[in-house]
């Protein structure tokens, strides 16, 4: 009797867990399916070769794509080296210092802080002082989002490097920084690269920090001193517009971003997997 009741309760609860998995995965599949369905409808070569159109016209997404690539690239060039260095301090020089503990805590908070707050900060610091919206402000906002991601993975990956390797380096007379650069970095290279790729994936879809830093631009521009179009902000603007052509372009842009992000995450995962198996 008791046994039957326990069995029944187990069946019910486990059934609920299976249902939860089915339910959750169903929604995520629905979203992806819809995205592919609506996005591919507008996918053509002109999306990559033409400028964003005025309302009611056909056109493409060339200027936002270029703007996004440019800002993402620069943001990584700024954010990733700083992040790697900070992670190096935390895992190598200052492994047991109080500073490292504080930085780790603050970095974890930055990691999940709302990105719109970062946008406000950069607005206050750069846009207000420069007097206008600009691409460089967008780059700085994105770099600030890259930073904590890279710091976190770099520290984690360097801590995985066995200390015996470092000791061996030191034993043959190499100074600390040579050991770090030629032994620790080399051993953790796959992991650190993964972190950078994940950071790129993270910022390539970020919209909120760009809304009032890089703003948007209807025309082709790579001038960092002026507003620059970006894919996410263009999607935001076009999706909320009443024009059908713009809405279609928004879906197509969303599909492009999703594919880029998924591809980056998969490459990062493969790299990390290879690092682990060694």
């Amino acid at each position: 009797m008791l046994y039957a009741r326990r069995r029944l309760r187990n069946t019910i609860m486990m059934g609920l867990c299976v249902a939860a998995a089915g339910f959750g995965l169903l929604w995520l599949l629905v979203i992806l399916g819809e995205l592919v369905w609506k996005g591919t409808a507008g996918l053509s070569i002109s999306v990559f070769t033409e400028m964003t159109p005025p309302p009611g016209d056909a056109g493409g997404l060339l200027n936002p794509i270029v703007g996004s690539l440019l800002m993402t690239g620069l943001a990584v060039l700024i954010g990733a080296p700083v992040g790697v260095l900070a992670g190096t301090y935390m895992a190598e020089y200052g492994r047991h210092t109080r500073l490292t503990g504080v930085v780790r805590f603050i970095n974890d908070i930055l990691l999940s802080a709302p990105s719109i707050i970062v946008g406000l900060f950069v607005y206050e610091v750069l846009v207000v002082t420069m007097g206008h919206f600009s691409g460089i402000a967008g780059v700085m906002a994105l770099a600030l989002i890259v930073l904590p991601v890279v710091v976190r993975t770099t520290e984690d990956m360097l801590l995985l490097v066995p200390d015996a390797l470092r000791e061996a380096g030191t034993a043959i007379g190499a100074p600390r920084w040579v050991v770090i650069r030629h032994v620790a970095y080399r051993a953790a290279r796959a992991g650190i690269t993964t972190g950078v790729l994940l950071a790129i994936a993270r910022i390539s879809g970020e919209t909120a920090p760009l809304l009032f830093t890089a703003l948007n631009n209807q025309f082709f521009s790579v001038n960092l001193g002026a507003p620059i179009a970006s894919l996410p902000v263009t999607i935001f603007q076009f999706a909320l517009s009443p024009y059908e052509e713009w809405q279609q372009l928004a879906w197509t842009g969303a599909l492009i971003i999703t594919f880029a992000v998924l591809a980056l995450s998969i490459v990062a995962r493969v790299l990390a997997g290879r690092g682990e198996s060694r």
């Binding site: 992040g83 260095l85 900070a86 190096t88 504080v102 930055l110």
Partner: peptide
Amino acid sequence: TRAAALLVLLSLAGV
């Protein structure tokens, strides 16, 4: 490297 670590703190303080 220490300066980079401090920069992380500074960025949150700056925000």
